[in-house]
């Protein structure tokens, strides 16, 4: 399942928040969306999923116009993890993860064997198997974030769209999420993720799209993340160093 935007623009009120953006994400690759707050990362994701109408341009989700898909059809093609996911009622972790099977017709209390297998695999991938019976309000912030990620994985959609999945996580938990994302791409899924953690993006992603003020500033492999691009994006001088082989970004 590939996702593409061609020359896509989005207006919120009178303001153009996405301006002529073209990107493509293909199966097996992780694309990281970078850029400052308000650059249009979330809008780009929502436009790609057909959740925000385009003022101009076109979106394609596996060959279809995503804005014409029913919620169920869309959910079978793409799993979307919004920023700051919620669990309004304190369900058990496994019941929350089972909600990922909604589009497959499953009620959390009556899972078919394939549904149960998908839930179990998602719990295992996010290291949540020992916590499956716990209530959501008894988890730490990192555990909650992993539970919501597991919900998205349980959906077993060929495209994963993750909006800041590592926000608020400690470095070890964030690296854990990066590893989960890599494993998903290894299994043939396409992944689009947004993050403010550039070092983490360098570890998880194959390609990078840097947005600023609704436009694509740079796109390509790790070599596009030059000091000039980072300064243009974030408005601060930046250096990219390697420490024992691991990328480190230093802002002045």
């Amino acid at each position: 399942m590939s996702l593409s935007l061609q020359n896509a623009s989005v207006d919120l009120g009178a303001r153009r928040v996405l301006d002529g953006v073209s990107i493509t994400i293909t199966p097996g690759e992780v694309v990281a969306l970078l850029g400052p707050n308000g650059a249009g990362k979330t809008t780009l994701m929502r436009a790609g999923l057909g959740l925000t109408p385009l003022a101009e341009g076109a979106a394609r989700l596996g060959g279809d116009d995503p804005s014409r898909l029913s919620p169920r059809q869309r959910a079978l093609k793409a799993a979307y993890l919004p920023q700051r996911p919620q669990a309004i009622w304190p369900l058990a972790v496994e019941a929350l993860v089972a909600l990922g099977r909604y589009a497959h017709g499953a009620a959390p209390e009556r899972l078919s064997p394939p549904d149960q297998a998908a839930v179990d695999a998602a719990l295992a991938a996010c290291a949540l198997a020992p916590l499956r019976k716990r209530r959501m309000d008894e988890l730490s912030g990192g555990e909650k974030a992993r539970a919501h990620l597991a919900r998205a994985l349980a959906q077993a959609a060929p495209l994963l769209v993750l909006d800041e999945p590592t926000a608020g996580l400690d470095p070890a938990q964030a690296l854990g999420v990066a590893d989960i994302v890599r494993a998903q791409a290894g299994a043939g899924r396409a992944v689009l993720l947004s993050t403010h953690d550039i070092a983490l993006a360098l570890r998880a992603a194959d390609r990078f799209v840097v947005l600023r003020a609704g436009r694509v500033l740079a796109e390509g492999g790790a070599d596009v993340l030059t000091p000039d691009v980072l300064e243009a994006a974030y408005g601060r001088k930046a250096r990219l160093e390697r420490l024992d082989g691991a990328p480190v970004v230093l802002f002045e």
């Binding site: 919620p71 869309r74 993890l81």
Partner: peptide, 11 residues
């Protein structure tokens, strides 16, 4: 339970 946005996203 997941909020409006994620509820629509799961179908």
């Amino acid at each position: 339970t997941l909020g409006e946005e994620a509820a629509a996203a799961i179908g």
